[in-house]
Design a protein around this nucleic acid. Sequence first.
DNA 1: CTAACTACCTGAACGC
DNA 2: TGCGTTCAGGTAGTTA
Length: 270
Amino acid sequence: MPELPEVESVARQLRPRMVGRRITAVWWDPQSRFTDIGEAAGRDVSELRRRGKYMLALLQADGRVDLELVMHLGMTGAFRFRGDGWVPDVYVRATLTLDDAILDFRDVRRFGRLTVVPAGDYATIATLAHLGPEPLGPQFQPDQFHAALARSRMSVKAQLLSQRPVAGVGNIYADEALWRARINPRARRIGRERAARLWEAIRAVLREAIEREGTTFRDYQMINGESGRNATFLVAYGQYGRPCPRCGETLRRILVAGRGTTYCPRCQRS
DNA sequence: CTAACTACCTGAACGC
DNA sequence: TGCGTTCAGGTAGTTA
């Protein structure tokens, strides 16, 4: 379940090996739900950005950026360069041939997506088009975050997962941040003070996870095939049945927005 | 429009 | 040991 820290770690490794290269050919599994990425062929990658859980490769032809390759890892997506101890297997769903390397996109569960859009035009990708601010960027501010949460009547966890109040938070870091901020995942009205606490918790949890290059349970790998080191630091996500490290109460597992959710019934009361 | 629900996908874990 | 069932979860599409 790659979320912002995992995608950031992948982007950091991908960037130096993609930017400045020409995509000479592309292949994708016709059975995948990828839209056509054929337009990427023959273009140069001028920049690799990350927005939330998306990676965006700016593509230029004749020195002008006109297209964008949008990449999402979904649940099990990973990029690997041929060589590097990596040999392609049956789960490779797309291949980008660069002028000096071959890059495979491997995705066991096929939840990942690659698609080419006109530069900056995300009309066909609703989540990206309505994506909230970067949690570690200057646009993400406590008051604005409070106002964004107040605009919806969904539970706070469902809102985080929607990517609208803030970009890049998924199931793992939502549970971690809500635990840290002592907010019940089902809470629907979040006051200014608690919004500010959650704002801080999201930033802290993501910053720490990025330092450890993400959380690996099973599938997430970086370009070099290595795992992230954050899994052993998780306090809430998947820790149900264990005592809360803060108050000792047994952490409970519930379903929120259709997702497994772990929280502390004592210190995350409301 | 909003919010809730479901499908997608496949290996791992579980139950008998 | 073997086989069937359930679970995980980000997003898109559908429904109310």
